[in-house]
């Protein structure tokens, strides 16, 4: 899937360059380049529907993640600005131990990077067995620790799980979705045989 994605990106860049060189009515400015790039990337994405439908769905999920990320990023900035400008500070900070469902390295990295930019949260550490994430939050959503865990699970992690279940192959889906270390060792042993 990663190879397919890089081929898609390179081909769309080449198509964008070709459009800018040959089509006369496209202006050679930044706006023209951006419009040509988006046109070529959607065209190639629609062509991809003929070859593999899984890649088509994967791009849809990545677009959902980007939309969620931009929305949360702007919301966090507005909220912090309000908090700093108004004279009275009312924060409810807490350190929450959030259980992880993602198992892959890249998934955990993307989760920490995005949740450092969403409102109030700052990832402080990962436990040694990689099953929990220590998150320092400024605003405790809903007042208790359980509601904050539910907010993290339903907001960011669900979207990342959708992406990782589409981008991995069949055996690894069970490890990423399961969550027991016993099942992972069983699958590894069955692979060796």
């Amino acid at each position: 899937m990663i190879i397919l994605f890089s081929i898609h990106l390179l081909a769309s860049i080449c198509l964008c360059y070709w459009i800018l060189e040959l089509v006369p009515f496209v202006p050679e400015t930044a706006g023209g380049a951006i419009i040509a790039f988006f046109f070529s990337i959607t065209l190639l994405w629609l062509i991809c529907y003929l070859f593999s439908k899984r890649y088509f769905k994967l791009v849809v999920q990545i677009m959902y993640l980007c939309k969620y990320f931009v929305k949360e990023f702007i919301r966090s900035n507005i909220r912090l600005t309000k908090e700093i400008i108004t004279p009275k500070i009312n924060l409810h900070p807490a350190v929450v131990k959030v259980p992880l469902q993602l198992r892959t390295d890249v998934g955990v990295m993307v989760l920490t990077n995005i949740s450092n930019l969403t409102p109030g949260t700052l990832v402080v550490g990962i436990s040694d067995d990689r099953k929990h994430l220590f998150v320092h939050t400024i605003y405790l959503e809903g007042g208790t620790l359980e509601t904050f865990k539910k907010y993290m699970r339903d907001g960011l992690e669900k979207r990342l799980l959708n992406i990782s279940s589409l981008s991995l192959s069949g055996v690894e889906i069970q490890t990423s979705g399961g969550g027991d270390s016993d099942s992972i060792t069983k699958i590894k042993n069955s692979n060796k045989k």
Partner: peptide, 30 residues
């Protein structure tokens, strides 16, 4: 930011006194 926060946890920089630390104290892995 993540690396700086992890280093601060490692040398035990104190939290604010209103911080809810019940989940953090029970887990001794960190």
């Amino acid at each position: 930011a993540y690396i700086i926060a992890k280093a601060a946890i490692h040398i035990k920089v104190p939290f604010w006194n209103k911080t809810d630390l019940t989940d953090f104290d029970n887990s001794d892995t960190e």
